[in-house]
Design a protein around this nucleic acid. Structure first.
Length: 229
DNA sequence: GGGGTCAATATGCCCG
DNA sequence: CGGGCATATTGACCCC
């Protein structure tokens, strides 16, 4: 479901400051900035290798790296044979070990972005490249945001359902009230006037209808403040 | 085999 | 202008 669907119910949701733009990953294209504005600024520290190249610089280690803590090998190293021949072209799938993932998660809980020192330390601790840690955090933030978007969507959907029900209920109530009230009560209030002296309702300004039924006892000071009967 | 997950890559924007 | 970031996409891998 997308946000448009939500809005097509004919209801207008008043949900405080909720901004639909934070919802629509539909057209996220350029600006991820609404997120970043709130994120902590981080210093930059460049590693000697170029940005895009460090993966190549370190590519070999995808097979070699293991996380020391529990001497965990890579999680699903079923295909250990291929890993020997770590060709230059292959983009093998590194699977982080449970211990690595746990530590990354732990760290993410504390701060969803890393400054260069944190990145370095974490990378060292995990026996990963800083770039890998960085990528992991990027992906992790993306996952978090996606999940949050889904939750927001669910929430709005619920709101929409609730309001639709409420709207239906109120319509029904109004219908019932209309049926149970005297006829003049069914006139729009603004068309009714009440004589200040006798306190009886006069009809609307040029009402033909009011003649036919009991004089209503409403007074509209704006239409006829000093009018007498 | 196809769908899901996730690390890695590509791209574009923003900010210092 | 370079680095960091968000976002989209790719591709390896797993599981049913």
């Amino acid at each position: 479901m997308d946000f448009e669907d939500l809005c097509n119910t004919g209801l207008v949701l008043g949900l405080g400051n909720y901004s639909p733009s934070s919802l629509t990953s539909k057209n996220p294209t350029k600006n991820g900035d609404h997120i970043r504005k709130t994120a902590e600024p981080s210093l930059t520290l460049s590693l000697s290798g170029a940005k895009k190249d460090d993966s190549d610089l370190y590519r070999q280690d995808s097979a070699a790296s293991s996380f020391p803590t529990v001497s965990v090998k890579r999680e699903r190293e079923v295909r250990s044979e291929d890993e020997e021949e770590d060709g230059p072209n292959d983009r093998k799938k590194l699977r982080l070990s449970k211990a690595q993932a746990a530590l990354l998660e732990e760290s993410f809980k504390q701060h969803s972005t890393l400054n260069p020192k944190q990145k370095q330390d974490l990378a060292r601790e995990l026996k990963l490249r800083p770039r890998q840690v960085e990528v992991w955090f990027q992906n992790r933030r993306a996952r978090t945001k996606l999940k949050q978007t889904e939750l927001d969507c669910e929430f709005l959907k619920k709101c929409c359902e609730t309001l639709t029900d409420e709207n239906r209920r109120l319509h029904k109530e109004l219908q019932e009230l209309k049926l149970s009230q005297p006829l003049y009560m069914q006139l729009p209030a603004a068309t009714l006037t009440m004589c200040p002296s006798c306190e009886r309702i006069g009809g609307a300004v040029a009402d033909n209808t009011a003649k036919t039924f009991i004089k209503p006892h409403f007074y509209n000071p704006f239409t006829n403040p000093s009018a007498a009967c």
